[in-house]
């Protein structure tokens, strides 16, 4: 009999892998460190997803219930893998709750960590309460409370969204583009304009990367239909004059330094490597790449192949990734793991 496949992480990539394996009749064990499944979209309380416009709790929630209802998926939440030994086809995984299980392969769908804006203190987060992150705005919207200034609960009249917070910045050792923030920010800007039609929303950008069809649906539409203003500028500092927030920037296209007051400043925070990647790499014996994500080989010979045979990786564990692509990768890597395991099992005999 073929052993089940271990999936680590219950976010979009992990759920998708479990769904796929279940669909073809393969058993899997899904280990999730939180007490519930869903990953960042559920745990962090995202609102409407890009580009489907579906609420995270419906879209990802649907994936969660399909997986939970499947007889072929053995969900172990509130647990971590602490030890992983053996060879392809015959691995043993030990969990933090003391259980151990035999698996033929492993899929690491361990995701990312949101950038902590405290690492960029000159942009005011941690100093001024009305400087918030995109995740906080998502939570304001998904909770049904609407967008408000945390300092006093008022509806903001002027909002600035700063792109590339924790991305494309050598000063803090994060040179990568986080891929999703341009589109997500344009989406949030439209949500704010819809909820608060009197509120002006500005987006401060270096380049707009609403790739593919998102160009039309987010970048163009946010301007044409929602009158969101884009200023090509990375701001230097966010301060306060005691009444409002002030941001200091250069409008690089007009070439003058500017200081503009706002009620609320939103950091479009990027995607860091999972803070636990060091220990994940150690437990599973896989390499990390230079930036600290889980390293994988080129895709031409197979998807999600790590440095350790029989261990695969999918989704944002590889680097900044969208939800849709994480889902696609989860399914693709399920195929890699499944294709390998009978061969490996045969070889092992």
């Amino acid at each position: 009999m073929t052993e089940p496949i271990l999936i680590v992480g219950g976010g979009p990539a992990g759920l998708s892998a479990a769904q796929a394996l279940s669909a073809v009749g393969r058993n899997s064990i899904l280990v999730e460190k939180e007490d519930r499944l869903g990953g960042a979209p559920i745990i962090s309380g995202y609102a409407k997803l890009v580009p489907s416009d579906e609420w995270a709790k419906d879209a990802i929630g649907g994936m969660v219930s399909r997986v939970a209802e499947s007889d072929l998926v053995d969900v172990r939440s509130g647990a971590r893998v602490t030890e992983f030994t053996g060879a392809p086809g015959a691995f043993t995984a030990t969990l933090s709750n003391g259980e151990s299980c035999q698996v033929s392969a492993a899929i690491l769908a361990t995701g990312f960590t949101h950038f902590d804006s405290i690492n960029k203190p000159e942009w005011g987060f941690g100093t001024y309460p009305d400087v918030v992150t995109t995740v906080q705005v998502e939570q304001m919207i998904s909770s049904g409370k609407g967008v408000y200034c945390p300092s006093d609960g008022r509806a903001p009249e002027r909002v600035a969204i700063l792109l590339c917070v924790g991305s494309r910045d050598r000063q803090i050792g994060r040179e990568w583009c986080s891929k999703i923030c341009c589109t997500v920010s344009a989406n949030i800007a439209m949500e704010i304009r819809e909820q608060l039609p009197e509120c002006s929303v500005y987006i401060y950008y270096m380049d707009i990367r609403t790739f593919g069809l998102n160009e039309i649906k987010y970048y163009w539409r946010s301007q044409e239909e929602y009158r969101v203003k884009y200023i090509k500028s990375r701001v230097a500092e966010v301060t306060s004059d005691g009444n409002r927030l002030l941001i200091k920037g250069e409008d690089t296209l007009v070439k003058r330094p500017i200081a503009i007051p706002f009620d609320m400043v939103v950091h479009a925070i990027g995607m860091d490597p999972n803070v636990e990647n060091d220990s994940i790499a150690k437990v599973f014996g896989v390499d990390l790449q230079a930036e600290g994500n889980i390293a994988h080989q080129s895709n031409y010979g197979g998807t999600g192949v790590t440095s350790r045979p029989g261990v695969f990786v999918a989704g944002a564990a590889i680097g900044p990734e969208t939800i849709d692509d994480s889902i696609a990768q989860g399914q693709a890597v399920a195929m890699s793991a499944m294709a390998l395991s009978p061969l490996a099992a045969a070889a092992a005999e």
Binding site: A236, G249, I258
Partner: peptide
């Protein structure tokens, strides 16, 4: 990157 953060924070640019 032509982001302008340098000019944004430059005293002389004022």
């Amino acid at each position: 990157l032509n982001c302008g953060i340098c000019t944004a924070t430059c005293p002389s640019a004022h």
